[in-house]
Design a protein around this nucleic acid. Structure first.
Lengths: 223, 223
DNA sequence: GGAGAAGCTTGATACAGATCAATGGTCCAT
DNA sequence: ATGGACCATTGATCTGTATCAAGCTTCTCC
């Protein structure tokens, strides 16, 4: 496990100048900036590039024909996304805030993987991390209550983006809801409940900065 | 895409004498029989083997501490399962009916993957198929109604195990419910509804043999 | 700095699906 | 053949979350 995908256990921190062991592919990556809310790629579009978040955050989602949305993952600083082992993307990806990504051509990557075992094994490790996240998320979506889901979300974000004890969420309540299979009102109510219980606190005026005051009780709420 | 995992698009039919391209590993697989309801491996157990269903069917699931269960996948004849790219299994696997599996040691497989690009790429393809299934299932669990879920389930089973126009389900209503994030009563009501609408019919005495009478209308119900 | 848009919370109500409960069928094992 | 362990269906009721609605706050951009 050498590459940091979604911050899963087994990953290691790494310098941002590289795309993990994929740097073996020796392809110079270029950077690109997406404004808040803009699409990085669309579902079923050709998957020509893979991406790494340099700054900002992105969401990957699927839509039903009537507009219902399921966000499969959030991509935070350092995460690699857009890696589909097929010809087309299976999600739409959008910048949640103004976001800078590093990107590299996928076809060249595939070509290298065919001749370089270490690149292939690295792709396998990244895909496995994504799979593990999806497996855990199926359990959450299929069987957890709204409070358990929100607790799990906070613990995930705590693990992945807490700086100086503060969770600075880049995404709005609707994004959280679409990630957890809930409505934004239910997410808001669960957060208010946790606030009332003294398990978390809000920082500043906006409700996007959260401080976890009691991780033990929060973890007990996520069965 | 050379290996048949969960019957996803891009897979090809294959003779049962092999474990896909993994046969390149040249490790003689042995067969084993599990009685209905018995455990093949447990969550968090060391992942020493990978498995291929020769006959029968299996379920992979996670449990919450209070017994709520989420089945992540059903493994039907020809499917390979138990392939974790970590040291331990992330699911518990059980035989749904009396089941024969072919198994091979995982450590030897890993060793071969490090020296053989084609084995590594094959593992990557299998993992990608599993990931794609999980991604689709997240959308189902997070955003679809009970009727949409049951319709999607029937279409998946139709694709994966219909013989002679009949879907012979190996699993009970509770298994279906735990796969779809519903209760068994809700699954039963949805099936009765589809029966009443003339979209499906039951064959014989048991309710496990289903004939799809109108795939078009069924597909319209799964958004 | 003011107007409008977006985002969040909170309350009232509705409803899809869960839960509780009863019945009948099938398949074994004795 | 009989008893009992599943298994599935169906009905009645309950409830967690969605939906509908209102109001407040904070951004954004003329």
């Amino acid at each position: 496990m050498f590459v940091n995908v979604n911050g899963h256990p087994g990953s290691r921190p790494k310098a941002l100048g590289e795309l993990g062991e994929l740097s073996r592919a020796r392809i110079v990556p270029s950077e690109f900036r997406y404004n808040k809310g803009t699409e990085i790629y669309g579902e079923a579009e050709p998957a020509d590039y893979i991406y790494q978040v340099v700054d900002g955050a992105a969401r990957s989602y699927k839509l039903l024909s009537d507009g219902r949305r399921q966000i499969g993952a959030f991509h935070l600083v350092g995460d690699i996304f857009g890696l589909e082992n097929g010809l087309v993307h299976r999600f739409t990806a959008e910048a949640i805030v103004d976001t800078t990504v590093r990107l590299m051509k996928r076809c060249s990557l595939e070509h290298v993987a065919e001749s370089d075992v270490f690149v292939a094994l690295d792709l396998l490790n990244m895909t496995t991390s994504n799979l593990q996240h999806a497996e855990d998320h199926m359990l959450l979506l299929g069987r957890k209550t709204s409070l358990e889901r929100v607790a799990a979300f906070l613990l995930e974000m705590d693990r992945r983006l807490t700086a100086a004890g503060v969770i600075a969420l880049p995404m709005c309540r609707r994004d959280i809801a679409d990630y957890l299979g809930l409505t934004l009102e239910t997410v808001s109510r669960a957060l208010s409940y946790l606030h009332g219980k003294g398990i978390l606190g809000f920082l500043g005026q906006t409700q996007r900065q959260i401080v976890l005051l009691d991780r033990v009780r929060l973890a007990e709420l996520d069965l």
